[in-house]
């Protein structure tokens, strides 16, 4: 056990799984970097350095730098998974799904069902998402609802280093296609992470706080916001339950209902666009299954229905924040 950042935890999971299974290959743009140059090899290790260092262990045969060609990357990774490799493909920013979604939506996600249960596609797609880096409309989106909408793929949104390593290990070992979504703002977050390999099963949400007065449900980066608000409320004598969803497909419906029924007051914090997002989905789930346990209307803290703005004050206004979550909580407490 030692203190590691989210970035290091992801890197360690890749390193350990690649050592354990020679069928694991990493594919993507600049995942090593410097290909074809006379300069430094492994120059980047991914655009934010997450895959740095893998090259020296596994060489270019297993750390495969590609051209900027997302459709071919996703297709190649799917086909490789279908025929015996266990690829980890990187979609640099989730926003780029627009140029390769067919290979995810119509190919990978459908193989198993369409082929009558005979296909095995152990594919992991790692991708970066989320706002806060002043990266503007095409590099800041939080597009997981687009993936949860599609049956046949699993969607993972780790909120901390421990979960990042365990869930990525599970993603790689899992025999279904998985989208593993890394929030850019979390890469430098540190936490205790075992040095050994371990895997966290999918569909098991995590309670990070337990309380009696109000329930917060978050995913990815918003879990941290929920925890901080819970700690603030505690100083004011109100205790909170916080649920970290961990995976959005499969969704741990039992824990969502358990967390909601525990207090009867629910605030869901979701960084994705507000129409048809995870917050609306969970609200519907709670209303449909345990309406009588609610003591107040469900609160959803989400961005407005606009693209992600560039200007710092505007982006700050756009994103869910502790202040917004706290004031939403106080409206129903």
């Amino acid at each position: 056990m030692s203190l590691k950042t989210y970035r290091e935890a992801i890197n360690e999971a890749l390193l350990q799984e690649m050592k354990k299974d020679e069928n694991v290959v990493v594919i993507g743009e600049d995942v090593a970097g410097g290909a074809g140059t006379n300069g430094e090899q492994d120059a980047w290790g991914g655009v934010l350095g997450v895959t740095k260092g893998l090259l020296k262990h596994f060489g270019r045969e297993r750390v495969i730098d590609t051209p900027i060609t997302e459709t071919a990357i996703m297709g190649m990774a799917s086909g490789a998974a279908l025929t015996g490799l266990r690829p980890v493909a990187e979609l640099m920013f989730v926003d780029f799904m627009g140029v390769c979604f067919d290979q995810i939506l119509n190919q990978t996600a459908k193989f198993r069902y369409m082929f009558g249960g005979k296909a095995v596609t152990p594919l992991t797609i790692r991708t970066m998402y989320g706002g806060g880096l002043r990266a503007a409309s095409q590099h800041s989106q939080c597009l997981y609802p687009m993936f949860t909408h599609v049956p046949g793929i699993k969607v993972v949104v780790p909120s901390n280093p421990y979960d990042a390593k365990g869930l990525l290990t599970q993603s790689i070992r899992d025999n279904d296609p998985v989208i593993f979504m890394e929030h850019k703002n979390l890469y430098d977050l540190s936490g205790d992470v075992p040095d050994e390999s371990y895997s966290i099963p999918f569909g098991e949400a995590n309670f990070t706080r337990e309380g009696k007065d109000i329930t917060f449900i978050g995913m990815g980066q918003t879990v941290d916001i929920c925890n901080k608000v819970a700690d603030t409320l505690k100083k004011e004598g109100k205790t909170s339950t916080v649920l970290d969803l961990r995976t959005l497909s499969p969704l741990d419906e039992d824990s969502i209902l358990e967390a909601s029924e525990e207090t009867g007051k629910v605030v869901i914090v979701d960084e994705s666009y507000p129409r048809c997002n995870i917050a609306t989905d969970i609200s519907a789930l709670i209303c449909q299954n345990s309406f009588d346990s609610l003591k107040a209307g469900i609160k959803m803290v989400t961005p407005p229905h606009t693209p992600v703005p560039f200007s710092p004050p505007l982006e700050d206004l756009y994103l869910p924040s502790e202040e917004k979550v706290l004031s939403a909580a106080k409206e129903i407490l």
Binding site: V25, I64, G75, S78, A80, L82, L85, P87, Q103, M114
Partner: peptide, 27 residues
């Protein structure tokens, strides 16, 4: 599709197959 015969699937998407072939070739 019949993976046991090396048939990776007909495809309803025009141009959908060749990217998948890249993957098999990579394997």
């Amino acid at each position: 599709a019949d993976l046991s015969k090396g048939m990776l699937g007909a495809n309803g998407i025009v141009g959908g197959g060749p990217p998948i072939v890249l993957g098999a070739a990579l394997t």
